[in-house]
Every structure is written in structure tokens, then in C-alpha cells.
Amino acid sequence: MRFLLEVTLDDDASDADRAAGLGRILRYWGGNLHRYALRDGTGEAVYDSAYTEVGQWRVSAS
């Protein structure tokens, strides 16, 4: 099984802002993964702090 997290980071943002945004995403999804059945095909969109879709996560069998 593979857990895939893809996030597009803003090229115009500073390194610190990108790191902070990614940190928020990882904390949020890391804390909520227990709510999902982690099996092939499970996934959802990922949003930044402005509620803009910036990526997705998904579980794949291989």
C-alpha cells in the first residue's frame, strides 16, 4: 500500500511561508487520517489555510 500526498506550493511565496503552509497541511491531515479507511482508492482534496484546493492525498494498492 502507498500513501501519496501531492501539494502544489506557491512559487511566489517565501521559503518560510511555503514551509508554514505545508506544515499546517501535514498537521491537519496527519491528525485526521484515523477517520478514513486506508484502502485502495481512498483519497480527498487538500486545502490551504485560505480554503483553496492545493492538492490531494490518496491510497494506492501499489
Rank of each mutant, 00 (worst) to 15 (best):
T42C: 07
G30L: 03
I25N: 04
L22G: 02
Y51V: 12
L4D: 10
D17H: 11
R18C: 09
Y28W: 07
I25P: 06
R2Y: 13
T42G: 04
R39F: 03
E53R: 01
Y51K: 15
A50F: 15
G43I: 12
V7P: 06
E44L: 02
S14N: 15
A20G: 05
S49I: 14
R2L: 05
S49T: 14
G41D: 04
A19V: 04
S14M: 15
D48G: 06
A61Y: 05
E44D: 07
G43H: 00
A37P: 12
G31A: 10
G55A: 02
Y51M: 09
D15P: 02
T8G: 06
L33H: 13
D10C: 00
L4R: 14
T52Y: 11
G43C: 04
Y36W: 12
S14T: 15
G41Q: 05
L4I: 15
A20Y: 11
T42L: 00
Q56M: 11
V59M: 09
Y51Q: 13
Y51S: 11
D11T: 04
S49L: 09
S14I: 14
L38A: 10
F3H: 03
A20H: 11
Y28F: 12
Y51R: 15
E53Q: 11
R24M: 06
L9M: 11
D15K: 15
D12P: 03
R24P: 01
R2W: 11
R27Q: 12
E53I: 05
R24Q: 08
Y28P: 03
D12V: 01
A50E: 14
D10E: 06
R27P: 01
A19D: 12
A20C: 08
L33V: 12
R18L: 02
N32Y: 12
D15E: 13
T52S: 00
G41N: 04
L22A: 06
A20F: 05
R39Q: 12
V59N: 00
D17Q: 09
G21E: 04
R35S: 02
G43T: 13
V59K: 05
A19L: 06
A61T: 03
S60E: 09
E44R: 03
S49C: 05
I25K: 04
R2A: 02
A13S: 13
A45F: 01
R2T: 08
L22D: 06
R58T: 01
D10Y: 03
D40P: 00
D12E: 09
V46F: 12
A19R: 10
Y47Q: 10
G21I: 05
I25G: 03
M1H: 08
L38K: 14
L33E: 12
R24G: 04
Q56C: 08
V59L: 10
R24V: 02
R27K: 10
T8S: 03
S14A: 10
M1D: 00
R18H: 04
W29V: 05
L26Q: 06
Q56F: 09
S14D: 06
Y51A: 10
N32Q: 15
A16K: 14
Y36C: 10
V54F: 01
S14P: 14
R58A: 06
W29T: 02
S49Y: 15
A19F: 11
Y51G: 07
